[in-house]
Design a protein around this nucleic acid. Sequence first.
DNA 1: GAGTGGTCTAGACCACGGT
DNA 2: CCGTGGTCTAGACCACTCC
Lengths: 242, 242
Amino acid sequence: MAQNKFLHIYEILKARIANDYYSDTMLLPTEMTLVEEFNVSRNTVRRAIQKLNEEGLVYSVKGRGVVILESTKKDNMYVPLSNFQGFNTLHTNKKSESKSIVKSFREIIIDEDLAERTSFDAGETAYFIERIRIVDGVRVMYDTSYFRANIVENLTEEIAHGSIYSYIRETIGIQIASAKTFLKVETAIAKDMEYLDLDGNNCVGAAENIVYTDMGKLFEYTEIRFIPNKFVITNFAQNINE
Amino acid sequence: MAQNKFLHIYEILKARIANDYYSDTMLLPTEMTLVEEFNVSRNTVRRAIQKLNEEGLVYSVKGRGVVILESTKKDNMYVPLSNFQGFNTLHTNKKSESKSIVKSFREIIIDEDLAERTSFDAGETAYFIERIRIVDGVRVMYDTSYFRANIVENLTEEIAHGSIYSYIRETIGIQIASAKTFLKVETAIAKDMEYLDLDGNNCVGAAENIVYTDMGKLFEYTEIRFIPNKFVITNFAQNINE
DNA sequence: GAGTGGTCTAGACCACGGT
DNA sequence: CCGTGGTCTAGACCACTCC
C-alpha cells in the first residue's frame, strides 16, 4: 500500500497499461474520469499521469487526451547492475557472481590538473581510490574515484573494500542528493588494458560521475571505464520538437 | 517574456543561481518568500523549483530548504550536435562543417528477425535507410533507420537527403511525441569499418532509438553507430538513495 | 516549537483537438 | 461547439530539519 495517493494511482495505472486493460482506446481515461474513480483531486491524478509521462509510458496531448505508447520488446530486456546508477547489464537469465577488488587507496593533494577534472579546489586533500569490478570472473569495469577528505572523513582501505556509500550514509550521516553523468566511448589507454579483460577490443566506455551531498557540496568525482558489449545505458527523451 | 509564470520564475531563479546571487546561503529563498516576491501561488513557485531540480541545479530537502548545488567546470563544456537528441560533441571553438549522405534507401518487408529488433510487426512494409554523417571531412556516425510505411507514407530518397523529420511534421502532419534510447559500446563489425573513419579503433558507440508519434504509434527504429572520442552523452540522476 | 518543503483539495480560466 | 489537458489560485494538513 503506497502512502502517497498519487503514487498509488500511478502504480494502478501502470499495471493497467501493462495488462492491456486500456488497450482498446489507446487513451487513458480522462483526468475527470480518474478523479471520480479514485475520489481524489484533479491535481493528484495529474501527478500520477506526469510520472507515467516521465517514464515514457504515455504522452499527454492537450485537447485530445493521454496517449498510451505502444510497448516494445525491449521494455523488460535489461537488468540493473548493483550500485551503478543508470547502468544495466545485458539480459542474462543466470545469476552472476560479482566482486570487487581495491587496486589503489591513498590520500592525495589536488593539483591544478585534478582541480580542472574533478571541480575540487586545488590544494585540498582527497582520497584516491581505484577499484576493479569482476563479474563471473571477467574484469568488466574499474572506477577511479576522488572523495573530498573534508567531507568523507577517515575513509580507510577497509571501508573501500565494502560499500563506501553505506559508510557515508550510515556512519558519517551524509545524505546523497544527486549525480550528473557524462558518457563517452574512448580509445583504450595502457591502464585500461592492464585493469580490464578487453578481449581484443581497443576501446572502453567511459562515464564521468559527479555526486553531491544533500548540503549541495560536491563530494565525489568518479570515472568509470568499462568493457564493450556488456552494459546498456537507458535514456528517455520527451518533447523532441523543440 | 515567457508566457507561463512558472517558466518565467524558473528562468529568473536559474539566472540568479548562475550569477551567484544566492551563493551566500547555498539555499534558495523559501517558497513563501518567493510567493511574495513574484505574487504567485505557492504551486507556481513549486513548479519552477521542480524544474531546477530536474536539471540538477538544486536539490530540495524537506524541512531544510532548496539547496543550491555547487557548479562544476563541466557545466558548459559541451556543444549540442545538430539533430541528434542527447548527443553532444566534445567542445570545440571552431565551427564545424557537417553533411550527410544517403547510403541505402529501399522498401523492405519486416521479417521475424527485424520484428524482434524493431518491435514492428512481421510482414509489414517499412523504409530502410542508411545515412552517413560527415563532420569536418570525418565520417563520425551512420544510422540505420526503419520507418513504418503505413505511417510515414511516400517517403523518397530525395526526402531522405534532407530532413525526414521536417517531411513528417510538415507534409504528413504527424507530431513526434517522445523517444527511448538505449546505449552501448560494441565491437566494430564489418559495416562499421566500411562506413566510419575508425582510425584504428575496433569499437563503436551504438545507440538504439525508438520514436513515437503523438498518436502513440511507434514509427521509427534507428540504430546509430558512432566513432570513439567524439561524442558525449549527458545524463542526470536524482534520488540515488532508493 | 518554529519553519521548511511534500501532499492534497476544490475551485477557476485558458488553449487546443476533434466534430 | 464541447471536451480535453495546461496553468494557476488559495487555502489546508503533514513530515521533516534545526534549534
